[in-house]
Amino acid sequence: MLAVLLLSTSAKALTAASLYTTMLLSACGPDGSKTDERKQATQAPKPPTTAKSAAAVPGPTAKVVRLTNDSLAGQPFGPEPTVTELLKAGGTVVTRKPFRNLHEAGQIDTILLLRHRGNLFEFYRAPEKDLLRDASITNFETAYGQRLRARMAAAHRPAAGTTERVRIGDTERANYVSVTYNGGRLSAVHVEPYVD
Score class of each variant (00 low, 15 high):
residue 177 V to L: 00
residue 32 G to I: 13
residue 82 T to L: 14
residue 47 P to R: 04
residue 41 A to W: 11
residue 184 G to T: 15
residue 33 S to A: 02
residue 87 L to F: 14
residue 127 P to A: 11
residue 126 A to N: 01
residue 53 S to E: 11
residue 42 T to F: 12
residue 136 S to Q: 12
residue 11 A to H: 13
residue 134 D to K: 11
residue 82 T to M: 09
residue 79 P to G: 04
residue 2 L to V: 05
residue 3 A to M: 02
residue 135 A to P: 10
residue 194 Y to M: 13
residue 186 L to G: 07
residue 152 M to K: 06
residue 191 V to W: 00
residue 79 P to Y: 05
residue 155 A to L: 03
residue 35 T to W: 00
residue 177 V to F: 00
residue 57 V to G: 01
residue 184 G to D: 14
residue 124 Y to R: 15
residue 17 A to L: 07
residue 108 I to D: 05
residue 144 Y to T: 07
residue 69 N to P: 01
residue 109 D to N: 15
residue 1 M to T: 08
residue 22 T to C: 11
residue 121 F to P: 08
residue 169 G to N: 13
residue 139 N to S: 13
residue 30 P to M: 10
residue 128 E to S: 14
residue 2 L to D: 03
residue 74 G to L: 09
residue 158 P to S: 10
residue 188 A to E: 14
residue 126 A to H: 05
residue 4 V to W: 11
residue 82 T to G: 14
residue 187 S to V: 15
residue 22 T to F: 08
residue 146 Q to N: 00
residue 113 L to R: 13
residue 52 K to H: 02
residue 95 T to C: 10
residue 128 E to G: 04
residue 144 Y to N: 03
residue 172 E to F: 10
residue 17 A to G: 00
residue 154 A to T: 08
residue 136 S to Y: 07
residue 81 P to A: 11
residue 84 T to M: 04
residue 83 V to R: 12
residue 11 A to I: 15
residue 124 Y to V: 15
residue 50 T to F: 02
residue 121 F to H: 07
residue 105 A to Y: 07
residue 31 D to T: 11
residue 23 M to T: 11
residue 122 E to R: 14
residue 39 K to D: 01
residue 147 R to M: 10
residue 142 T to A: 11
residue 1 M to S: 12
residue 167 R to Y: 02
residue 60 P to T: 03
residue 74 G to A: 12
residue 175 N to F: 12
residue 1 M to I: 14
residue 26 S to L: 08
residue 7 L to V: 12
residue 157 R to G: 13
residue 166 V to Q: 03
residue 188 A to I: 05
residue 108 I to K: 08
residue 19 L to H: 02
residue 182 N to M: 14
residue 14 L to F: 15
residue 66 R to P: 00
residue 148 L to K: 09
residue 156 H to D: 04
residue 151 R to W: 03
residue 154 A to P: 06
residue 42 T to E: 06
residue 163 T to S: 12
residue 93 V to F: 09
residue 80 E to Y: 02
residue 18 S to T: 09
residue 7 L to K: 02
residue 189 V to Y: 04
residue 169 G to Y: 07
residue 134 D to A: 07
residue 165 R to P: 00
residue 144 Y to M: 09
residue 86 L to W: 09
residue 184 G to E: 15
residue 95 T to K: 12
residue 62 A to T: 07
residue 1 M to Q: 09
residue 68 T to A: 05
residue 85 E to N: 06
residue 187 S to I: 03
residue 24 L to A: 12
residue 30 P to A: 13
residue 118 G to A: 04
residue 71 S to H: 06
residue 142 T to S: 15
residue 59 G to H: 00
residue 125 R to S: 14
